[in-house]
Amino acid sequence: MDVRSRNHVRVTGRTGGPIVMLAHGFGCDQNMWRLVVPLLEPDFTVVLFDHVGAGNSDLASWSERRYSTVDGYAEDVLEICHELALGPVTFVGHSVSAMMGVVAATQEPGAFSGLLLLAPSPCFIDDPVSGYRGGFSAADIEELLESLDSNYLGWSRAMAPVITGNPERPELGEELTNSFCRTDPDIARVFARVTFLSDNRESLAHVRVPTLVAQCSRDAIAPPEVGAFVQARIPGSSLITLNATGHCPQLAAPEETAAAIAAFAGAGL
């Protein structure tokens, strides 16, 4: 399976423009960027992809071994960069993907002209020893995993095939499946663990590419002190706080988000 099909890579926008690579977080797929992409297309080459296990990626390429750490996903990001061979990209990583960008950039700084970390959190779980506050306890995360289980059982339309258990009749699942953000429940469970149980605080200090941390107002998942922590740890990085509320500014405030991306990615023009 080639990298483009594996990650359902799409390249759009202005050929020859500065390159912006948009990476979606846990819970959805590249559709997350659909309101932002049209705003960037006139000026930028926009690279979109689905993480393996999400959206239209190749599910057969998923293995628990590769994708149970942020590193496996970071490798995919680098492989996409190599495959497209477009030169250094401005990587925009939302939520857990921000940390994939951090890991990838520490491994191969030359692949990136900049990192825009959108609503990032290097560690969701509080660490009383160091005084770090990620906002959640281990029990909270277990509760999320239960939430996933109960919704994947079928009351959420996302996971109808699981409860019908009827692979011979895929139309049952097709009919009931959301048109966006499709995920396989087993994969989602592993991705949830990667997202919410990883601790990438150590990697931050090794980032050597220009970095902008963009956090949201009133984000229940990545509170302001987490954004400040990320900015303090990454040498030479800056921090902005968007007016957008919630954890998904690319949906809640696409114009503001696109403007922030454009200002950062176009800074060298």
């Binding site: 819970g27 999320l144 996933l148 996302a158 229940a220 954890h247």
Partner: peptide
Amino acid sequence: VGGRLYHETHFGPLLR
């Protein structure tokens, strides 16, 4: 708390 995480990562984006 778990429901809130689910809401922020799945429910909210899909609704939008």
